[in-house]
Amino acid sequence: MSAEHPLLAHHFDDIEQQRGAETLGMWVFLATEVLIFGGLFTGYFVYRSWYPRDFEAVSARLNVLIGAVNTVVLLTSSLTMALSVYAVRTGRQRMLLHGLTLTAVLGTAFLVLKAVEYYADYRDGLVPNTAPFDAPEHQREWAEAQVSPQKVILFLMFYYVMTGLHAVHLTVGIGLMAWLIVRARGGTLSPERYVPVEVCGLYWHFVDVVWIFLLPLLYLTGTHHPADFTHFL
């Protein structure tokens, strides 16, 4: 126990306690984040149980190709984030810089794909109160599938609010990566001073976990056809 550790703040007994408190702070914050998203998930489950057929029908219309590709993109970014933590703790500065940059780039790629997907949703008539959504031939499709437009809008509201809130979190995460990259370049991250990378990593992985649950609830709740994976291209 190094009581004379140069990074030790005066209100901690030793550096281990200080680092423990720093990561614990992020875990407590993430516990509150669980409840923010949890409220949306609870609402989803209630309406999912009330209108199962309608939710399955609209879910089957979502862009499963981009949804699946984005899942892989985000999981890969979590891998590069985890490797960045390894890099900073073992003093590999170049690997740290590359890892953080890759993480930020993959996160940005996710947002770009999401924007492309939102536009495809608009074109496919999945944005309520727009011309493609209100088009009579499109409404007739829902009627033939015996799905009421109100239930379609209800599911889509969950889709846009949940993916939107997730995208906001991811944007914050990319900002954190930019801050870490600046610090890594300035040489203020080291095996002794690794906690910033560790706690930003915790946040990044949490955002990944949220998406892991959004994928089955939004995209995979309906049965897809193999053609769904190609007709968006």
């Binding site: 999912r48 985890a82 992985h205 892991i212 649950f213 089955p216 995209y219 709740t221 049965t223």
Partner: peptide, 29 residues
Amino acid sequence: SLVDLGEWHTVVGLGIAIAKALLVVLFFM
């Protein structure tokens, strides 16, 4: 999602998601 599981899609999907979340939380975090 290509197999017609009906309303079991959500249950199976959630089960797999929980397994994935555990992997991320236990090892990555």
